[in-house]
């Protein structure tokens, strides 16, 4: 237990010590999206009746921030440790695979949630935000951050260079998040892209999250949860398996 707690504390402290880059910068970037899109589209787009475009947009941006930062934390921490070699500090002690996994998972979730909360709170400066089902908001924030935290850990274990991680971020994470309905409802898309979006797990994360705020969504939140939860379990299982086998960590 002490081993897990120490590794978790170390992982949290690692991003906490450079708060400017790891928390403040992503919040600022997300707020820029909010500023520009809400200014341009506020008068033209209304997705759900009674919900302004800005308050429609905020949950999507919050979720996007959660996902990107949950991914970034585990992946960048692991690749830095691998490249600098200090990964031996936690490979030498008698830490179990589960302790290792949980420490990295929870620390990455904390980073995602802290940035998400920061975006949500600063979003309140722009508009009022309703909170119809806070429990759904929490459920989707937790599950989605866990999924991308696992994803980040897997990428961090797999990657050997920073460019490879950047590749995953640019070619997988960015398209997944931008083509998921952060900025629009997928009902406004042509039929083909609507169908494609239904295969994008991030779409369900954002849709379910939004339901928690506004009480309306494109699909039923239970259905969204049913789409996201198995992905989380599969990724968690895969991460544990990689850690157990020592893939790319122990020769």
């Amino acid at each position: 237990m002490t081993g897990f707690l120490t590794l978790f504390r170390k992982e949290v402290l690692r991003f906490w010590k450079v708060l400017m880059q790891t928390v403040a910068a992503p919040i600022l970037t997300t707020l820029l999206y909010l500023l520009i899109f809400s200014h341009v589209l506020e008068a033209h787009v209304q997705v759900y009746p009674g919900v302004s475009y800005t308050s429609f947009l905020i949950p999507g941006l919050v979720m996007m921030a959660i996902l990107q930062n949950a991914f970034a934390n585990g992946s960048s921490s692991l690749i830095q440790s691998k490249i600098s070699g200090n990964i031996v500090f936690f490979l030498l002690p008698p830490l179990s695979y589960l302790e290792f996994f949980l420490a990295y998972l929870l620390a990455a979730m904390v980073r995602g949630l802290v940035v998400g909360l920061g975006v949500a709170v600063s979003g309140l400066l722009f508009t009022d935000l309703s909170l119809v089902h806070p429990l759904w908001v929490m459920v989707f924030a937790l599950v989605a951050s866990a999924v991308f935290a696992c994803f980040g850990i897997i990428a961090g274990i797999w990657a050997e260079k920073f460019d490879q991680l950047a590749g995953v971020q640019n070619f997988v994470i960015m398209p997944l998040t931008f083509l998921s309905g952060v900025f629009y409802s997928i009902h406004s898309l042509p039929a083909f892209w609507q169908a494609v979006s239904h295969y994008n797990p991030v779409f369900y994360m954002i849709d379910g999250f939004r339901y928690g705020f506004h009480g309306v969504s494109d699909v039923d939140p239970w259905q969204s949860l049913a789409a996201v939860l198995p992905i989380g379990l599969i990724l968690a299982g895969l991460t544990l398996q990689l850690l157990r086998s020592g893939y790319k960590l122990r020769h």
């Binding site: 237990m1 002490t2 081993g3 707690l5 120490t6 590794l7 504390r9 170390k10 500090f89 936690f90 002690p93 008698p94 830490l95």
Partner: peptide, 10 residues
């Protein structure tokens, strides 16, 4: 301190 913690020493 971290290294001690990884070995389970508080």
């Amino acid at each position: 301190q971290f290294q001690s913690g990884y070995f389970g020493i508080k």
